[in-house]
Amino acid sequence: MNDNDSNEIQHSPPPGDWVLRLYIAGQTPKSLAAMSNLHRICDEHLAGKFQIEVIDLLERPQLAEGDQIIAIPTLVRKLPEPIRKVIGDLSNIEKTLVGLELKSL
C-alpha cells in the first residue's frame, strides 16, 4: 500500500536524483519555515538533482502511516536509500545537513 502511494506521488525521478518528501499539517509557521529552509539547503547543496514533494497531512491524513509520521514537520529522504528522517522546521541547517548525510559530523 505504501509503495502504491509512493508511486502516485513520485514521477520516476532521473537516476541519481534525490527524492525528498516533506510532511506538514497545514500552513503553519513551522511548515512554512521548513519549506523555505529545505529549498535553500537543496539549492545550495543539491542544485539541479533533487525533487521535493510536500505532503499536507490535513489533506491526505492516510499518508501518515506509510512513513510512520509522528512529528510535524518531518523530512524524509526517500532516495538515495537508506531512508533518512529529519524532523523540525529545519532551522538548524547543520543538523539538517547531517541528517540528510550531506555532511558528516
Binding site: Y23, K30, A64, E65, A71, I72, T74, D89, L90, V98
Partner: peptide, 26 residues
C-alpha cells in the same frame, strides 16, 4: 502502531506531534 526508531530521527528545529494527533484522530 506508532513506530519509533530514534536512529532514523534527527531533530533540526521546532516541531510538534501533529502526526500523532492526526493519526489518532483518524
Amino acid at each position: 502502531h506508532l513506530h519509533l526508531d530514534p536512529h532514523e530521527l534527527i531533530e533540526a528545529g521546532e516541531f510538534d506531534l501533529d502526526g500523532v494527533f492526526l493519526r489518532l484522530g483518524a
